[in-house]
């Protein structure tokens, strides 16, 4: 008899959504993610174009990055995934 490993699909109902928050900032964030996974949000103030990136880990730590760092992170990931054909 073959015993199958229990496979639990994570974040089945999770999405990435963009909305305008209470302060009028454009906010893109992960939504309905499982509690034991990472959550990410990016917020841009349309008045002065300033951006913040927030990453919340399942361990309860929160990290905040400025727009310049967020852009550098994006560029590095974009370049890497382009090389490995993982971009869309």
């Amino acid at each position: 008899m073959v015993t199958r490993k229990n496979q639990v699909t994570q974040n089945r109902s999770a999405t990435i959504r963009t909305r305008e928050d209470r302060r009028g900032n454009m906010r893109t964030e992960t939504f309905r993610r499982d509690e034991d996974t990472v959550s990410v949000a990016v917020s841009t103030n349309p008045k002065n174009d300033s951006t913040r990136l927030f990453i919340d880990t399942p361990e309860g730590q929160s990290y905040s990055f400025d727009g310049r760092t967020a852009r550098t992170l994006y560029r590095a990931l974009q370049k890497h995934y382009q090389q490995t054909n993982k971009t869309w």
Binding site: L53, L77, Q78, Y81, K86
Partner: peptide, 12 residues
């Protein structure tokens, strides 16, 4: 997580 980060930044 890195893929997720990229996806969120890309969409934003």
């Amino acid at each position: 997580d890195a893929l997720l980060l990229h996806a969120v930044l890309f969409k934003h």
